[in-house]
Simulated assay, not measured.
Amino acid sequence: MVDNRYATALVIGSVLSLLATVYLSVAVGTQNWYQYRMVPATNSNANSNGNTSELVKEFIHGDLDEKAYSDTMFLLNGTLGLWWRCIMVPSETHWYKEPDPKMASQCVSFTLPQQFASKYKEPGNEKSGEDLLRTYMWRCQFLLPLVSLALVFLSSLVGVCACLCRSVTPTLGVGVLHLLAGLCSLGTVCCFLAGVDLLHRSASPPEAVDGALGWSLYLALISSPLQMMAAALFLWAARSHRKSYTRMTAYRVA
């Protein structure tokens, strides 16, 4: 039998784990981790330039290096995600020029070779040498959320086995897995922020471009403490139940 306190802790921990998984999954699948915005006057001048359409075509269909697609994102109010890079383009094309056209997001996904490609001290310049710190941070920000989701999935399997066996003992393993998943989620956010900061030091955006954190990053940031709180509840339930069981056994023996 499981005490009501332990059952409540398990239920609350499961709800927190589910919320964290949903938040992290949405964050990984969306592109609003970091966004660039130009001041309106500069943006209108850039859009009036005939090179804008060429930039869009190269961004979508070309095999651009890091420097090239970063410059395009600076000029066209781009957003950056773990698996996506996006720019803002006019949603509809007319034979006349609209004074204030509606803009839509056009995204291109990073391929698997691009995720594991080397980063250079001068973005886009292979002769400048590989920047190992940025290279491994980029790879970690891609792999760590997958590891976090895998750990949560594994912990759910352990939890199902615990329910089938009617035992709280495997809950200790569930708590440890959730703790590791929370650390991986936090590591994802830290690697992304550090990587963006290092990129801006090597290739700083124009003065007219403002950078800001996006809502996708905040979802990933929220998922980390939720996973850790779930881990704390699971660990508390497992340890408290074990103590109660030990005391009960000792009482019966006595």
Rank of each mutant, 00 (worst) to 15 (best):
A117M: 11
Q114E: 15
E122D: 15
D63A: 09
E126W: 04
M103I: 03
D65N: 15
E130N: 05
D100P: 05
F110P: 02
D100C: 08
F59M: 03
C107R: 07
Q114L: 03
F110D: 03
T72A: 15
F59C: 03
L82G: 02
D71P: 00
N125T: 13
I87W: 03
L64D: 04
W84Q: 15
L64C: 07
H94Y: 13
F116R: 08
W84F: 08
V56P: 03
K57A: 13
E92T: 12
A117R: 10
E126P: 07
D131L: 02
T111D: 12
Q114A: 07
E98M: 14
Y96V: 13
V89G: 04
F116W: 09
K102T: 12
E126A: 15
S118W: 07
E92Q: 14
D63V: 03
L75A: 14
K97G: 08
A68T: 14
T79R: 11
S109M: 04
K121Q: 11
H61N: 15
G81Y: 06
M73E: 06
Y69V: 05
K127Y: 09
D131C: 04
F110K: 09
H94T: 13
F110R: 08
L82Y: 00
K67F: 08
H61E: 15
G124C: 05
W83N: 15
C107W: 07
C86E: 01
C107M: 06
A117K: 08
I60C: 09
L80W: 01
L82P: 00
K97C: 06
P99G: 01
S128T: 10
S128R: 05
E98K: 06
H61W: 09
L64F: 04
G81A: 05
L82S: 02
E130R: 11
I87L: 01
G124M: 03
G78K: 00
Q106F: 02
P101K: 05
Q115E: 13
F59P: 00
L75S: 12
E98P: 02
Y96I: 13
C107S: 10
T111G: 14
W83Y: 14
G124D: 05
Y96W: 15
D71A: 13
K57V: 08
E66T: 15
D63C: 03
